[in-house]
Simulated assay, not measured.
Amino acid sequence: MAVDSFPAKARKISANIGAHYVDKARKLPWRSPPGSNLPDPYHVWLSEVMLQQTTVGAVKSYFEKFTRRWPTVQELARADEADVMAAWAGLGYYARARNLRKCAVHVTDILDGRFPQKESELLQLPGVGAYTAAAIAAIAFGERAVVVDANIERLVSRLFAIDTPLPRGKAEIRAAMDRITPKHGAGDFAQACMDIGATICTSKNPKCEICPVQEQCAAHALGNMEFFPVKPPKKTKPVRRARFFWVEQQGRILLATRPPKGMLGGMRALPDDGWAAGNDGHAKPPMAGKWQVHDNIVQHSFTHFSLEVDLAVYQDEKIATNKDDNIWWALDQIAEAGLPTLYAKAVRWKLKEKK
């Protein structure tokens, strides 16, 4: 592509994407309609944190639950961390939930309940990275910021046939997005690009026939849309082993609180054997007694490893445990315990096995 043709192409892309958004914008609970007043920064921040590595479909109900329970950033700041973690359960990547409350406290106590407007200042907030800062600045405050999420990355790499493999190609993709981002309405433009990436310019079988920028798309001209973006070969994930322990008494189940640091930190869970991303668990039970072990009842995939879980069920009538951190939870209310998905899978397996 000749350098002098880029500005004209960029203008056409921006105009077509903007027009498409006016007619086809997705209706989402954290958005304002195209061209309307800017949305609540608290809603934008909350939704963007939830949407990191998570689908819109999965986030909608969590967003609505959080904003009903904690309608303002000040109320979220006053919430107990355990309640926030429990409400987040099932959404994954739990460090986001811990940072969510830290950020709410920071905004409330240090910034008088107001989110900063500038991208550089937003970057100073706990848990807010480059993408989230740009998204909040553009969408909530109308600042011109260059927003690049996975959907935009795919769309832009195809528009300009950027074949530098990721992650090295990210800089080229961001530079291209910078060139097509308008001076005014950057928030609507970014959301329009997200929508096209999510619903039209999909990873597999993109719907090029209804794409508003088909004529400007270099990948479409090449007839090789799915080649972009170019990703490095996938690494084989290591497989770790863990053992969970089921101790039941009078309709209650024994739970534990995970260590505050590390994976799933501070969350309620079944007692386990100290498994971690870097090592298998030791498989030793938390107390002496007769245990029945069910092998490999759960398989769970994390970003960098997979986990195979055994479940050991306590068989003795007498329960000899007096630890201060014991939590006895009614089995018929286990859904309210806020267990991470991994542990909830094991509970579902056991309850089904009992029937």
Rank of each mutant, 00 (worst) to 15 (best):
A10E: 04
R11S: 12
Y21C: 03
D23R: 09
W30S: 15
R31G: 10
R31P: 06
G35R: 13
G35A: 08
G35V: 08
S36N: 06
P39L: 06
D40S: 09
P41Y: 08
P41D: 04
P41L: 14
H43M: 04
A58G: 11
A58Y: 03
Y62K: 13
Y62P: 12
R68W: 05
P71W: 00
T72L: 05
E75N: 02
D80I: 08
D80G: 11
E81C: 02
A82W: 02
A82I: 08
A82Y: 03
V84W: 10
V84D: 05
L91R: 05
A95P: 08
L100P: 12
R101C: 03
C103L: 11
C103M: 15
A104T: 00
L111E: 07
E121K: 12
L122P: 05
V128W: 01
A134M: 03
I136S: 09
A137C: 10
L155E: 07
I162A: 02
D163I: 05
A171H: 09
I173G: 03
A175D: 12
A176C: 13
G187V: 00
D188H: 04
F189K: 00
A190I: 12
C193Q: 10
I196N: 00
T199W: 03
P206W: 03
K207N: 12
C208I: 08
Q214W: 00
E215T: 12
E215D: 12
F227S: 11
F227N: 12
F228S: 06
P232M: 13
K235F: 05
K237Q: 14
R241G: 08
A242R: 04
F244T: 05
W246P: 04
E248L: 09
L254S: 07
L255M: 12
L255Y: 13
R258I: 01
G266E: 06
L270C: 10
L270P: 07
G274E: 07
A276P: 04
A283D: 14
K284I: 14
P286C: 02
P286R: 02
A288R: 00
Q292G: 02
Q292R: 15
H294Y: 13
H294W: 08
D295R: 15
V298P: 00
Q299N: 13
T303K: 05
H304S: 14
L307V: 05
V313D: 02
Y314P: 00
Y314M: 03
Y314F: 13
Q315A: 06
D316I: 00
E317W: 00
N322W: 07
D325G: 06
D325C: 11
I327C: 09
D332A: 13
I334T: 10
E336Y: 06
G338R: 08
T341H: 10
L342Q: 12
E353D: 11
K354V: 10
K355A: 11
K355F: 13
